[in-house]
Amino acid sequence: MYELAKLFHLIAVLLWTTAMLGGCALLLAAKAEGRVRAALPVLRPYYLRSGGVGLIAVWAFGLLVATLGGWLTAPWLGAKMAVVFLLSGVHGALSAQIRRAAEDPGYTITPRITGLTVALAAGLVLVLTLVIFKPF
């Protein structure tokens, strides 16, 4: 059961992070090159579905893995959950940007998109570091 939960958690992580990184790339490209914006209404449903399902599955299977594996009281897991919590916020911000830019061709994509991309990359590196090394 533990191994199965871990498998589904990893699949969810891949789905979620791929959607978020793809969303960042899309928004940065759309901000730099106006023609890319035409792709936003087409790609928007895929992003919102895969990102939304990925987010819920990451939390559900992640908590299941932590419970089954007896990790819930581990300090490194607390730190990891805090980072994933912040990444959930990044996902919310990205989803809203994609939705607005897809619905309104005149919408100005936030200048904070670069900062969100950096925060996402840093968060993912931090999560991987915590999971692999379990430093505390």
Binding site: V90, H91, G92, A93, A96, R100, T110
Partner: peptide, 14 residues
């Protein structure tokens, strides 16, 4: 977590 997600969606618009 839901509040944080929805709040980030609402406020990060410049």
């Amino acid at each position: 977590t839901l509040y944080f997600h929805v709040a980030c969606a609402a406020v990060f618009d410049g």
